[in-house]
Amino acid sequence: MNVTLKVWRQKNSKSKGHFETYKLNDLNPDMSFLEMLDVLNEQLIHEDKIPVEFDSDCREGICGQCGLTINGRPNGHHHHTTTCQMHMRHFEDGDTILVEPLRASAFTVIKDLKVDRSAMDRIMQAGGFVSVHTGSAPDANSLPIGKMDAEDAFDSAACIGCGTCIATCKNSSAALFTSAKITQLATLPQGEIEREKRVVAMVDAMDAEGFGSCTNTEACEMECPQEISVTNIARMNFEYNRALLLGKK
């Protein structure tokens, strides 16, 4: 199959970007989108041009490092997928495909399609943990946790930190990402002790990074590769309001 690509090229975080058009011929429909970009880069190298920079690592949908805006939507026109799991067979022969980085003002473009998502790490640093140091843990079975609670906690914990939720939100809100961790730890007894401190610190960090408010459009849930539910956001709100009412702010 043949496609025409319009790719966002930006030399570094300070320079202004623009679109470049490239034509690719004889692609195999079984290729993943990223493998298609590999082919493009091989072509560019042979033409003595600078290849397109983009992030990817595991290429099996779990590490969260890849992520591109394809035709105006993060990770392309399928719901619940990462860019690496988007295959060319889902495009038509002769398509023109627009490729942009994931957009949010908290995500600075490093080069071309690579963005800096370290703001998400800083939210985690504020409170996305149980303060337990190595060696101090009691026996794992000393703390019974209901099967359903464990499964709910898992569903929240499955977040891969890819930033799709943020990029797909019209407000660039990090609510789904932040709330998934808060909910995981609020669901489990291990998180109980630091419950109020955690939610307040993480929400403050989220705001300090310049992410927007959640206005409950629920677009994040529709795109999340791990299908993290927006009920996590509700839980974060509950936890936060509870902390406020308890005067733990």
Partner: peptide, 19 residues
């Protein structure tokens, strides 16, 4: 504030289909 958070936004924006 949300507009500020969304930064420069996308050149082509089809995110609307999700909500």
């Amino acid at each position: 504030e949300n507009r500020k958070s969304n930064g420069q936004g996308l050149k082509v924006d089809k995110r609307g289909v999700n909500s």
